Amino acid sequence: MKQVFILRGLPGSGKSFYAEQLTDELVKGDENQFLICSTDDYFYQEGSYQFDKFKLPEYHSLNLARFIRGLAQEIPLVILDNTNIKKWEFLPYLEVAHAMGYQVKEVIVGDIKDKSLQHLYSQRNSHGVALKTISKMAYMFEW
């Protein structure tokens, strides 16, 4: 069965960890059987994460293209690991996955509205996203 998981959640909520757990559980970590697509990957320059908001549209397009290539190669498990705060952000992924015969599951990782968890997420996210930004993202989250 071909599966796509669309992960949604705040920075630091555990989306990347969840993605790794899925690959271990569903395909035993076999690198030929899964693809994790994260726009964050494109912000790494020489091993260092360097966020540039002006690059977001380009990097989101590159990530979508990588996702589509993975589906075209019929990789059994493809995971979208982005925050996906607004529904329009993951709609193209959802539509192409359905069009290419994949079963799609949307997963919200972590608790979006819990203020104490937002504090935890701001401390443990690996990209230095501030609490103020995380709280704003939580407020804007579309269910």
Rank of each mutant, 00 (worst) to 15 (best):
residue 65 A to T: 02
residue 84 N to M: 02
residue 21 Q to H: 05
residue 104 V to A: 03
residue 37 C to R: 08
residue 101 G to I: 05
residue 6 I to D: 05
residue 22 L to F: 02
residue 119 H to I: 14
residue 6 I to M: 02
residue 13 S to V: 12
residue 58 E to K: 08
residue 9 G to I: 00
residue 122 S to N: 10
residue 121 Y to D: 04
residue 67 F to G: 00
residue 121 Y to K: 04
residue 125 N to P: 09
residue 58 E to V: 02
residue 18 Y to H: 07
residue 97 A to D: 04
residue 133 T to E: 15
residue 100 M to R: 12
residue 27 V to M: 09
residue 33 Q to E: 09
residue 103 Q to K: 10
residue 142 E to I: 00
residue 39 T to I: 07
residue 59 Y to N: 05
residue 53 K to N: 13
residue 31 E to D: 06
residue 140 M to N: 12
residue 60 H to N: 09
residue 128 G to K: 08
residue 65 A to E: 15
residue 97 A to G: 02
residue 92 P to S: 00
residue 14 G to M: 05
residue 139 Y to W: 14
residue 41 D to M: 02
residue 49 Y to P: 03
residue 89 E to T: 03
residue 95 E to F: 12
residue 140 M to V: 04
residue 93 Y to Q: 07
residue 117 L to N: 04
residue 22 L to D: 05
residue 72 A to P: 01
residue 93 Y to F: 15
residue 32 N to E: 15
residue 29 G to S: 12
residue 103 Q to V: 13
residue 135 S to T: 15
residue 23 T to N: 04
residue 27 V to R: 09
residue 25 E to S: 14
residue 57 P to H: 00
residue 75 I to T: 13
residue 44 Y to E: 13
residue 35 L to R: 09
residue 8 R to F: 10
residue 52 D to F: 13
residue 90 F to W: 14
residue 107 V to M: 12
residue 47 G to I: 11
residue 73 Q to L: 01
residue 127 H to L: 00
residue 37 C to I: 06
residue 117 L to T: 09
residue 35 L to T: 11
residue 47 G to S: 05
residue 71 L to Q: 05
residue 49 Y to Q: 00
residue 95 E to C: 07
residue 39 T to V: 13
residue 106 E to K: 09
residue 106 E to T: 10
residue 40 D to R: 11
residue 62 L to E: 02
residue 19 A to C: 07
residue 109 V to P: 04
residue 96 V to G: 00
residue 134 I to V: 10
residue 21 Q to T: 08
residue 133 T to F: 10
residue 40 D to G: 00
residue 89 E to H: 10
residue 96 V to Y: 11
residue 79 I to Q: 12
residue 63 N to H: 01
residue 73 Q to D: 02
residue 70 G to S: 00
residue 134 I to L: 09
residue 114 D to V: 06
residue 135 S to L: 14
residue 65 A to Y: 06
residue 31 E to N: 11
residue 55 K to E: 14
residue 15 K to V: 14
residue 77 L to W: 01
residue 121 Y to G: 02
residue 101 G to A: 06
residue 79 I to E: 11
residue 135 S to V: 12
residue 92 P to V: 02
residue 11 P to E: 11
residue 89 E to W: 05
residue 91 L to I: 02
residue 49 Y to T: 09
residue 47 G to A: 05
residue 125 N to K: 06
residue 129 V to R: 11
residue 23 T to L: 07
residue 59 Y to D: 01
residue 42 Y to T: 09
residue 92 P to T: 09
residue 47 G to H: 10
residue 14 G to P: 06
residue 18 Y to Q: 14
residue 66 R to V: 14
residue 94 L to R: 13
residue 139 Y to P: 03
residue 140 M to F: 10
residue 90 F to K: 01
residue 119 H to N: 12
residue 74 E to M: 10
residue 22 L to H: 10
residue 38 S to C: 00
residue 42 Y to F: 14
residue 1 M to I: 11
residue 124 R to P: 12
residue 17 F to E: 06
residue 51 F to P: 00
residue 99 A to Q: 03
residue 1 M to P: 08
residue 31 E to H: 11
residue 14 G to F: 03
residue 122 S to A: 06
residue 93 Y to W: 00
residue 128 G to C: 13
residue 141 F to A: 03
residue 32 N to V: 07
residue 92 P to Y: 10
residue 5 F to A: 13
residue 50 Q to G: 03
residue 80 L to W: 05
residue 54 F to L: 15
residue 18 Y to P: 08
residue 73 Q to E: 04
residue 58 E to A: 03
residue 59 Y to P: 13
residue 137 M to N: 01
residue 45 Q to W: 01
